[in-house]
Design a protein around this nucleic acid. Structure first.
Lengths: 216, 216
DNA sequence: TAGATTGTTAATCGATTAACAATC
DNA sequence: TAGATTGTTAATCGATTAACAATC
């Protein structure tokens, strides 16, 4: 009914909505308006209504959105209404840290397998997960129906790991290595590059002074 | 001379350019074209030229960009030509992992101080950094001239830590906690929320099937 | 000179915001 | 009913891309 192409920006906001709705739900809040959401999440209310309206009519005019119902709907949209399995490659400090975030994901998404190219890591247990060798990746991805991959290896190896994920049939990859990697059409790649993020923040040091020279 | 307002999207790409240029420099590549950069970084060459042209004329027509010169210029634009000090609050798994990224930052940016609200963490040494109590934050920020803050505490405490950073005079914050936090005008806040990122990837599972029903 | 590539303008594309009729 | 708030259209704003004259 709604064959419109949904933009990436919209999809990225959905988990933000979901997270806050879950909070409201825990506080037994029944109803929320786009106004409320906008204030809390620092977004324009019209944008929120528009985002949601891409997927259906979830609100009631004059009333707002039912929190529980909207949670259910967003979970459906994001395909979080059934289990989603994630594999992580690279058990350095960052990789090990992310393994401990399973609880935060809840929502049916879970890191279920961990790999490392270093043979000496094989068998190490991290947060209930046993490190597997890279040779097992294709088999494990199939057996555990893993659809998402996380890359936490050094930059030099990131593209190679991505390629292996793609061969194994993974549909989406989140890359933490500080390098641009490419995937074929149909395999989603997102970059979570904390070093670039920090460097870009440097730009805003004192630039305000130049711009706001006369802001009084 | 160029009073144009630079968009955030442009600023975010500069570190990406810089990183690849550094690689080229290590391989003794002298010159690079926007074409080359675009292919490697998966960006439109016109966009790259436009991004750079906001800040000056760094290239030579018919030739391209001198790698060393462009590195120097981008470092100047990003204010990486003088030391920038970063403080991190929250020494959980993620915080400790990020402390080990100092080497990747190089470029004059460095995590120089680490804090934790848990008194039992005081004095613990992480990657040559001694954990300080939160009470020391204002003083240390001043003394060490810290301008950027990293937040790796649980979501419930993130806003509070941000407020403390702001009071102490920090100009920009990178928040890893899975929650939206607000800062006053003039203090830059970026969110590096890995859980939202993962949840949004879920959206792309099989959506292609619906769209590409007939792609052959 | 001929070929290559920049810097920049104009065209396109897409995303955000404002406004308001519909309606709870 | 009066007040509130949605869903949606239209207006605005901004970012990306194409195109090309300038020029190395």
């Amino acid at each position: 009914m709604k064959p419109t192409k949904i933009s990436e920006a919209v999809v990225r906001r959905l988990p933000i909505y979901l997270r806050y709705l879950n909070e409201l739900s825990l506080s037994d809040v029944q109803t929320v308006s786009s106004q409320d959401l906008g204030e809390k999440l620092d977004l324009n209310p019209a944008q929120i209504r528009k985002d949601l309206a891409y997927f259906g009519e979830f609100g009631r005019k004059g009333v707002g959105y039912n929190v529980g119902y909207l949670i259910e709907k967003i979970r459906q949209i994001l395909k979080l209404d059934r289990p989603l399995h994630v594999a992580l490659v690279g058990t350095g400090n960052l990789g090990r840290a992310l393994c401990n975030y399973n609880m935060y994901l809840k929502d049916n998404m879970k890191i279920t397998s961990v790999f490392d190219a270093d043979p000496s890591k094989e068998g190490v247990v991290i947060n209930n997960l046993t490190v597997e060798p890279m040779s097992r990746l294709p088999q494990t991805v199939k057996e555990k129906e893993i659809s998402i991959g996380i890359i936490t290896v050094p930059a030099a190896e990131a593209q190679n790991v991505a390629d292996r994920f793609v061969e194994a049939g993974v549909r989406a990859i989140l890359n933490f290595a500080p390098t641009v990697i490419r995937t074929p059409e149909g395999v989603r790649i997102h970059h979570a590059d904390f070093t670039s993020e920090l460097l870009s923040l440097a730009y805003y040091m004192n630039h305000e002074e130049a711009l706001d020279e006369r802001n009084e």
